[in-house]
Design a protein around this nucleic acid. Structure first.
Ligand SMILES: [Mn+2]
Ligand SMILES: [Mn+2]
Ligand SMILES: [Zn+2]
Ligand SMILES: [Zn+2]
Lengths: 138, 138
DNA sequence: AAGGTTATTGCAAAAACTTGCAATAAGGTT
DNA sequence: AACCTTATTGCAAGTTTTTGCAATAACCTT
């Protein structure tokens, strides 16, 4: 839709191609305001592109994450979920009831700088999920 | 081995039971100095207890993590790995070469306090994995 | 607009992980 | 030491995720 050609040229510049599958999956991610599981992405995107298969969804999501168009997040049980890339943020999730809350990146800014200078690692991924116990469940 | 009875009573106190399967799996985790995948745990523990099955390994690892005897960590592709519970620490992993480095919890102490007071969440899990680009790969 | 290169997909099969349920055995009670 | 309760396991079957490879189609070049 909107940023379609933006995405396309971004990929082409790196020697990749824009495909109907990638577009359909990007649409699904853009329309969701939350994180989606690969299965949910598949269901959504298949409506736009009926021939779409699940292996392609898995591979595409991984590809989009590697290339900065999507971000991954971890659920408690270790399953990946995906979200369109946008402003930096993090999550804190209740390990009892699953309640989720967004955490602004500003809160981690200082830590990230310290991490970078201490470890020498750079470009640390800014989409973390912390697990704790929410106020209700305490 | 060493802390066997310690583990046993810890579980019994909560209405759970110590079993040969749980012991074999705890041994496997104790002897490993790194994180293990469920498959690796299965291979190791099966040597000590040949009848062990994979579903039991998955269920047991989840059980041990829930009860504080083991900790989980996420690999880049979202798969869970397990480690015996011990001193608090974190990891930073290179998303290019996979190189890994331990991060002391002291570095995150301040953040954790801020997170707790800002969000109201408590008992935030202290075993995070950050992804970045290591000095070599930059 | 046609042709060529090769990144990407679909298909089929494999591997990893999960679940339901009957059989087993831990560990408390008599 | 025998008995009971029920947490835990193994088995078999399901579901999810990954992989190899031949067919397809994006897009660069002519
Ligand atoms: Mn997010
Ligand atoms: Mn660790
Ligand atoms: Zn909660
Ligand atoms: Zn590296």
């Amino acid at each position: 839709m909107s940023c379609t050609s933006e995405y396309a040229s971004q990929l082409r510049a790196r020697g990749f191609r824009m495909t109907s599958q990638r577009l359909a999956i990007l649409h699904a991610l853009r329309h969701a305001e939350t994180h989606l599981s690969p299965r949910e992405v598949y269901i959504q995107a298949k409506q736009e592109l009926p021939g779409l298969t699940e292996p392609t969804v898995y591979r595409t999501l991984e590809f989009l994450a590697e290339n900065g168009l999507a971000r991954t997040s971890q659920t408690g049980n270790g399953h990946l979920r995906y979200q369109i890339a946008g402003n930096d943020h993090h999550h804190i999730v209740c390990r009892i009831c699953g309640d989720e809350m967004e955490v602004d990146h500003a809160l981690l800014e200082r830590l990230y700088h310290k991490l970078e200078s201490d470890s020498g690692y750079m470009r640390i991924d800014s989409h973390m999920t912390f697990f704790g116990v929410c106020p209700q469940c305490q």
